[in-house]
Computed example of a mutant assay.
Amino acid sequence: MSPAFRTTTIAVHTGRRETVHNLTGACEAFLAESGAREGLLNVFVPHATAGVAVIETGAGSDEDLLDALGDLLPRTDRWRHQHGSTGHGRDHVLPALVAPHATLPVVAGRLALGTWQSVLLVDTNRDNPDRTVRLSFYG
Score class of each variant (00 low, 15 high):
Ala4Gly: 07
Thr7Ala: 14
Thr7His: 10
Thr8Ile: 08
Thr9Leu: 02
Ile10Gln: 05
His13Asp: 12
Gly15Val: 00
Thr19Asn: 04
His21Asn: 04
Asn22Val: 12
Asn22Ala: 07
Thr24Ile: 13
Ala29Ser: 13
Ala29Asn: 07
Ala32Met: 12
Glu33Met: 09
Ser34Glu: 11
Gly35Asp: 07
Arg37Tyr: 14
Arg37Gly: 10
Glu38Asp: 15
Val45Gly: 11
Ala50Tyr: 11
Gly51Pro: 12
Gly51Asn: 09
Gly60Pro: 07
Gly60Met: 02
Ser61Glu: 00
Ser61Met: 03
Ser61Arg: 04
Asp62Arg: 02
Glu63Gln: 15
Leu66Glu: 06
Leu72Tyr: 00
Leu73His: 05
Arg78Gln: 12
Arg80His: 12
Gln82Ile: 01
Gln82Glu: 05
Ser85Lys: 03
His88Cys: 14
His88Ala: 14
Arg90Ile: 03
Arg90Gln: 08
Pro95Asp: 04
Pro95Tyr: 02
Val98Met: 14
Ala99Lys: 04
Ala102Ile: 10
Thr103Ala: 11
Thr103Trp: 08
Val106Met: 05
Val107Arg: 15
Ala108Leu: 05
Ala108Val: 04
Arg110His: 14
Leu111His: 01
Ala112Trp: 13
Gly114Thr: 11
Thr115Tyr: 10
Asp127Trp: 01
Thr132His: 08
Arg134Pro: 07
Leu135Glu: 12
Phe137Gly: 03
Phe137Thr: 02
